[in-house]
Design a protein around this nucleic acid. Sequence first.
DNA 1: ATACTAAGTGTACAATGAACACTAAGTATG
DNA 2: CATACTTAGTGTTCATTGTACACTTAGTAT
Lengths: 222, 222
Amino acid sequence: MNTKYEGFETPGITVDLSIFTVNETRLKVMLVRRAEVPFQGYWSLPGGFLKTSESLDAAAQRVLCEKSGVSDVYMEQLYTFGDPKRDPRSRVITVAYIALIPWQSLPQPASEKVTDLTWASVDALPKLAFDHREILSYAVKRLRAKVSYSNIVYGLMPKQFRLSELQSMYETIIDDKLDKRNFRKQMLATGLLKETGKKELAGAHRPAMLYQFKSKEIVFFN
Amino acid sequence: MNTKYEGFETPGITVDLSIFTVNETRLKVMLVRRAEVPFQGYWSLPGGFLKTSESLDAAAQRVLCEKSGVSDVYMEQLYTFGDPKRDPRSRVITVAYIALIPWQSLPQPASEKVTDLTWASVDALPKLAFDHREILSYAVKRLRAKVSYSNIVYGLMPKQFRLSELQSMYETIIDDKLDKRNFRKQMLATGLLKETGKKELAGAHRPAMLYQFKSKEIVFFN
DNA sequence: ATACTAAGTGTACAATGAACACTAAGTATG
DNA sequence: CATACTTAGTGTTCATTGTACACTTAGTAT
């Protein structure tokens, strides 16, 4: 270890992830139960220490994959939290990330009861470890804002979907109702969707056209 | 030092600042000349290591004050850069900040020639140390974007100003011309400005009303 | 055959944004 | 002191965008 930082901090660096999904018209976030002190038994955001020669993005990807079993999903850096007292043990700075996973992409939980991982509705959160409540609030705020000026919801949709499902996704996240005709007009006007030609199979009602995104690119409007 | 981080990184943490001002209708950023290796003699963004028990924001404030002599200006965290190779000596993670200073608030440089600090036009930058070019590109991008959906330019204006000066500030940052009548209508419609009652004193032309901001609050439009 | 469910479609009006040119109030000059 | 010069200040028209709103269609279930 070099001596370059005498008198300066050499804190631990972690990444913490707000991993979102939508299920049953609720915006949900992944929480893991802490096995160790401090905050033993508390729910917390999944996270972990940065490894040697690992970039921040790579660390976030690693944590994502470890906890969710998926990769290749939308992820972005959110903010860095560095209050000297945020970890009671010692100085730890955390770089927070947001990730989005379509509910359909999640592997089914193993049949034995998984009690150390849960998906909590963001409007019914338990007490969280560290400053994770603050981090999560900020993440939800960013997500809600970004939904209205980008096509970030792509990250939460399955490969193919009905327009009504897409509308429901928007409504769940922004927690408001949208007009069906206007919504469809606007979505199709973006030119980012294409019909698959296929129609929904089942249901005691008129079958819906299935759509998909032309590309995975995230675009900003306005 | 605890042993908790064995096998993990305990990198140095720095803050690096993109300190912007506008002068002579140019968007400028503060650069400092590096006295030491690596990148000795190169221009770089002002920055410094995080001190013990110092929050990230406090560190950024400290650096800002050391280099510019001002405090109480607009500042926000930008992004955290953590590529393992970004510092050739050893692992250093930097939390980048943006700050805005009205040109009029800057203390005059001491009369002896200051050669280790400069204000460079963002479209005529010298070679920069480390990954500071990348950081600065991102900062400029964020600033330009934010100008169009917030009143962030407040941070660059003097206490009192003419509407034509405000317009010029916008035009400089977004690098485009605006329509005078529409601009005035829109600005006054925000309700964030108030007349001071005073008029500009000098000039071989009709004197302009001076305005100021009702509050320092940053507001988002749309 | 009828009831049920979600899909799918167009128009009228309001609000917002964009283009555009002249008069007003001072100072400087001959 | 008349004229030239400079920047301040002001409204209207038109195009575009956004918003409110209700009925028909295509399938399944009974």
